[in-house]
Design a protein around this nucleic acid. Structure first.
Lengths: 222, 222
DNA sequence: CCAGCAATCAAGCGAGTTCTTGAATACCAG
DNA sequence: CTGGTATTCAAGAACTCGCTTGATTGCTGG
């Protein structure tokens, strides 16, 4: 009976470790991060994460074996989505890493300083100003992510189109750009470009996953 | 600049993965589970987890490198303790595993059924009854864990001493035994023994980490 | 039925992880 | 300073993981 108790304990911790192993790879964490924006096909995920198709597929299968994502096949496409409770767990992991690993802060600071001071903006304050009409809010993610959920009042201007669409943006008031969240670089690039062009631009550090988590109701579609 | 953005992203996810890698091993999860009971020396942890000393030391160093635990040397002893925020993260990981991995439930059920139905007891209800004096509450963990924090009103009767101390336990009322938490087998064994001896014994599934997390103020010392 | 695309499978290599064993270090008591 | 104890270090064998490449499956439109 002591032996069967030991087997039970081993089995249980072995199961817990499945989750840990699954999030023990930077690639898989990046895929989870992307999936926080909404469901995606393998091809899109591979492209965004900079992985080969076969490699991305394999990582996604590891995540699926750990039940962190679910796959649904429709036609020739397979769409992956986060399983329930996983977004919260991922954000918890990230917060722990930010709190405990000095290296995360150091990397962020180094990167952001390299492209000029980039003071960020508070989301709730921004929402008030946006409603009052005093500021232009840009969602610079790819269009399908905008469609899956965005800040009310934000306009979709993907980073790739920003330079060509500068004339759409009013010059007489502040511009705030956001993207997927604190570790996505799209908004950083957008703000750099906007400033070069003379706009009063700021970056909103948080993104849809954080807002959803905080209870903000997002707009979708269009 | 696209290249430096990619390097930044890689670096950040690499750092997040340090946490994941650290909790990707069943042994290390067991060590974390034990450390949720309070700080311990290497030797005690190795013994409780059934690891060789060198192996336990190595695992603890991995956890320390990921900043999940902190080590303090006093005399010839090294005492490890959980870092801030890690208990919450561990309980979150465990809850996710319970929710998403059918295997965890299956293993628990199989184990518990093997030793007879073992209906469990609610902690808040128990506290009321304990205060009212209608039930005997036993803490069957090793004494030093009892000292580090226990349920108010509970008596320390380590499982190893239980058989010899049966006469201390009143036979005219219910007995509730608890240990480290849902995946610790001490209370299960205690209840089995008590029932064999004719006591009306029940297991309290949760343990000090869960209660602390829920805001219950624990007693310590003695 | 065939061409073409999305996704997966299979095999293989290099790199990393886990556990063991035996030696080394650090501290304390006498 | 010496012996004993707590812990860590070092190195090797077995195993697992991650990525690549090329073949394969499965669906769809012509």
């Amino acid at each position: 009976m002591a032996a069967s108790a030991r087997r039970y304990k081993d089995e249980v911790f072995e199961q817990f470790a499945r989750i840990g192993k699954a999030v023990g790879s930077p690639r898989r964490l990046e895929l989870l991060d992307l999936l926080c924006q909404g469901p995606r096909t393998v091809e899109v995920l591979a492209d965004r994460a900079g992985l080969s198709l076969a490699n991305a597929s394999q990582h996604l299968q590891v995540l699926r074996a750990a039940r962190l994502v679910e796959a649904e096949k429709s036609g020739p496409f397979v769409t992956y989505r986060l399983a329930d409770g996983v977004e919260g767990f991922y954000l918890g992991l990230r917060r722990l890493a930010e709190e405990r690993l000095a290296e995360v802060h150091a990397a962020s600071r180094a990167f952001l300083e390299e492209r000029g001071a980039m003071e960020s903006v508070d989301a709730t304050e921004l929402l008030q100003r946006a409603v009052a009409g005093g500021v232009t809010v840009l969602d610079v993610r790819p269009p399908e992510e905008y469609r899956a959920g965005h800040l009310p009042g934000a306009r979709s201007v993907p980073l790739s189109e920003l330079r060509a669409r500068l004339r759409e943006i009013p010059r007489d008031r502040d511009v705030v750009a956001y993207c997927r969240g604190p570790y996505c670089v799209l908004a950083v690039e957008a703000v750099r470009l906007l400033r070069e062009e003379g706009f009063a631009a700021h970056r909103l550090e948080s993104g849809p996953p954080e807002w959803r988590r905080a209870g903000v109701v997002l707009e979708s579609g269009r």
